[in-house]
Write a protein that binds this DNA or RNA. Structure first.
Lengths: 339, 339
DNA sequence: TAGTTTCGTGCAATCGATTACACTAAAAAA
DNA sequence: TTTTTTAGTGTAATCGATTGCACGAAACTA
C-alpha cells in the first residue's frame, strides 16, 4: 500500500500520459488549467513524491553541494556551515558535510567521493597540510564550481571567501600595544597557510608602526591545541627577556598559554596580556575571559554560498571571485589592564 | 575533452556491449578474464567514473544516510556524527548531516526533504520540543530504517541507542553525597524528554538510598544555557535552606551556575559542589574544571550505525533494537573537596 | 557423430522524470 | 466554407547502469 507513487501511476488513474502529468506538475503553460488542477489534486491525494534521483539523472544536476571542513565541532566551522545552509536551503540545495580531520589523503578521498556523487559544487576549507593541488583540478576539470573559504590555495578558477587576516593580526597586536605591552610574542600555525602568514604580517606591521623592534625569538609556529600553548609559554618564559603579552593565532593555544601562566604565578592581564583568534565560545565562558579576533563565520558561510549560486547562474562564464571580509576584535579580560 | 565517460563509450571503443562492460566492471563471473581485464584497463585509461545517480535510480538505493541532530557544534553530537561516519564510510555509505536547531517544524521539513532524496536510512536525535510523531511514521511507511540516538520517542519499529541516563544521574548524585553534600539541587531539561526524566529518577534513587529526603524545591526544569544556570542559582540561594550542591543535566547550566556562585562569593567546591552532564570539552578547560557525566558519544554513534547496517541486511525482517550504553562520571575540581 | 552443457555476450526492458516533436481538434482568420 | 492558428496531449527518446533471457560457439558426453 505504501509503494512509491510515480507519475505513471497518476497518469494511469487519470487516463492521460505521464508526459502530461509531468508538465502539469511543473506548471508548464501548455497544460490546460483544468488538467493541471486535476493532476495536482490527484498527486496530492495519492501522496506523490518526486523522485529526485530520476530528476538528477535526467538533468545532470543533483541539487546538492558538498562542504568540506577540517572539523565540524569547531564553532568557527559549524557557524560557517550554518551560514551556508541558511543561504542554500531556500534555493532548494542540499548540503553534504564532510570532515578531513586535517588529513590530506582524506581530503582527496572525500573530493573524489563527492565527484562520484554528481555533486553540483564544492565549498571547502583546505587542511593545514595540503600540498598537492591535483584533486582540486579534478573538480575544475569537471566544470564543477569550487569555492575556498578561510583557508585557501591560490588556484586559477577557484573563488575564495576569506577574512582580512592581516588586519586581524594588526588589530590584535595594536590593541596589546595600546594596553601598554612592550614585548609581544606571537604563536602561529604553519606559515605555509596564508591565514597564519597574514596574521603574522599584521602583527609585524603593528609593531613597526609603533616603533617596536621585531624579535624573531618571540615568534613560534605551533600546533593548535592547549598543550602547544603550554609548551610555548614554557619556552618564552625561559628567554632572558621574556615577553609580556601574547597574540596567538589560535584560541586553544591562547587557552593553554593562560593555563600555564597561571601555573607559573603570572598575573593576567596585569603582567601578561593575551589575545586569541577565532572567538570560540569558550573564550567568553572562562572566568578570565579571553580576548579574541572574531571572524564572522556565519557571514563567511553566507558569502561562500552566494558566490556558489552566482557561479551556477552564469553557467559557462568562468567567474572567479575573491571576497574578503573584515574581522573584529573582541576585547575581554585577558587583555584589559584598566577596567 | 572532459565530458563524462559512460559504459557506452567504453563499449564502443572495444566493440562490445554496455552490458558486457557493466558486468566486467562489477566482476560478474560470467565474463571472461581477458574481457574483464581489457574493460578494466580501458575504463581506467578513459578515466571512467560510475554515475552513482544512475545506479541509485536503478537499484532504488542511494547509499546515503541522513543524520539529524539539534546542533552540529555541540561536541556531544559532533562526536556521535564522527562515530557514525567511521562506521559507515568503509561500508560505502555517505552521510548527510542536518540540524534542527531544536525546531519541530524544521525537523519535519528535514525528514521530508530526506525522504524525497531517496535516502537509505535516517539516524537522529529528536528536538526537545517534538510532540507529533506523524513524520516518523512517514519514514517507517516507506520502509526506511529509522534509528533514534540519545533523545528518543518510543515508537514501534524504531530502534534506539541511548545511554543509561538513570545510572548517570545516580552516579553523579551518589558522588556528591559521598563528598559530604547534604542538600543537593538538580536542574533538568523538560521531563517530557526521557533522558531528563531518567536522570532525575537516578538522582532521586541516590538520595533515597542514602536516606536523604527529596525536596521538590531543589529541582528545577530549565533551558540548557548558561543564563538558565545563573537564574537557577539565584533562585536556589534565596531558599530559606539553600542547597550545597548541584547536579545539572547540562554542562552549560552547570557553567552558568558556577559563574553565578562565584559572583555571590560562594567557595567551590568547599561550600558548594557541582556536577554537569555531557562532558563538553570546556568542562575540562576551565581553571575550575567541572565534573561531568560522559556519555561516550563516539561509541553511541558507532552503535547507531551498526544497528542501521543490521537493518539493511535483514531486509524485510523488522527488527527493533534497543541498545543502552553506560555513562561514566568524570570527577574534576568542581566536586572534589579533599585533594 | 549427434546431443548436451557450459561459457561469454548481446538484446532489450527497466528505474522515474523530462522534453523535442508530432498530431488532433477547436477557434480564428480569410 | 476553407484555411490557418493555437491550445492541449500523446509519442518516444533520453539520462547511465543493471540484469533476466536468449543465443551462438566451444567443449564435453555418450
Amino acid at each position: 500500500m505504501n509503494e512509491k507513487v510515480t507519475i505513471y501511476d497518476i497518469a494511469k488513474k487519470l487516463n492521460i500520459t505521464a508526459a502530461t502529468v509531468s508538465r502539469a506538475l511543473n506548471n508548464n503553460p501548455k497544460i490546460s488549467e483544468s488538467t493541471r488542477k486535476l493532476v495536482m489534486e490527484t498527486a496530492a491525494a495519492m501522496n506523490y513524491k518526486q523522485n529526485k534521483l530520476a530528476v538528477a539523472l535526467k538533468s545532470g544536476k543533483s541539487n546538492t553541494v558538498g562542504v568540506i571542513v577540517p572539523y565540524i565541532d569547531r564553532n568557527f566551522f559549524a557557524s560557517i556551515i550554518r551560514g551556508i545552509e541558511e543561504e542554500l536551503d531556500p534555493m532548494g540545495y542540499h548540503t553534504i558535510i564532510c570532515q578531513t580531520h586535517e588529513d590530506e589523503q582524506k581530503e582527496k578521498d572525500t573530493i573524489n567521493a563527492l565527484l562520484n556523487t554528481q555533486i553540483d559544487g564544492i565549498l571547502m576549507s583546505i587542511t593545514k597540510v595540503t600540498q598537492s593541488t591535483s584533486h582540486f583540478r579534478n573538480v575544475l576539470n569537471k566544470q564543477i564550481p569550487l569555492i575556498f573559504f578561510d583557508r585557501k590555495k591560490n588556484i586559477p578558477g577557484v573563488s575564495t571567501v576569506t577574512i582580512n587576516d592581516f588586519d586581524g593580526g594588526y588589530q590584535a597586536t595594536k590593541h596589546l600595544i595600546e594596553q601598554g605591552c612592550k614585548r609581544i610574542a606571537h604563536t602561529s600555525g604553519d606559515f605555509a597557510l596564508e591565514i597564519y602568514k597574514d596574521r603574522f604580517e599584521g602583527y609585524k606591521e603593528a609593531l613597526s608602526e609603533y616603533g617596536i623592534p621585531f624579535k624573531k625569538e618571540y615568534v613560534m609556529q605551533t600546533r593548535s591545541d592547549t598543550d602547544a600553548g603550554k609548551d610555548a609559554i614554557t619556552k618564552f618564559m625561559k628567554l632572558p627577556n621574556p615577553p609580556d603579552a601574547l597574540f596567538s593565532s589560535s584560541d586553544y593555544v591562547a587557552l593553554g598559554a593562560i593555563q600555564k601562566l597561571k601555573e607559573l604565578g603570572v598575573n593576567i592581564p596585569e603582567d601578561f596580556s593575551v589575545v586569541g583568534f577565532s572567538n570560540e565560545p569558550f573564550t567568553k565562558f572562562m572566568e578570565l575571559s579571553i580576548s579574541s579576533v572574531d571572524q564572522n563565520p556565519m557571514e563567511m558561510g553566507k558569502m561562500a554560498a552566494r558566490v556558489f549560486l552566482e557561479q551556477m547562474n552564469d553557467s559557462g562564464v568562468k567567474i572567479e571571485k575573491k571576497v574578503i571580509l573584515s574581522p573584529s576584535l573582541m576585547i575581554r579580560k585577558s587583555s584589559t589592564k584598566n577596567d
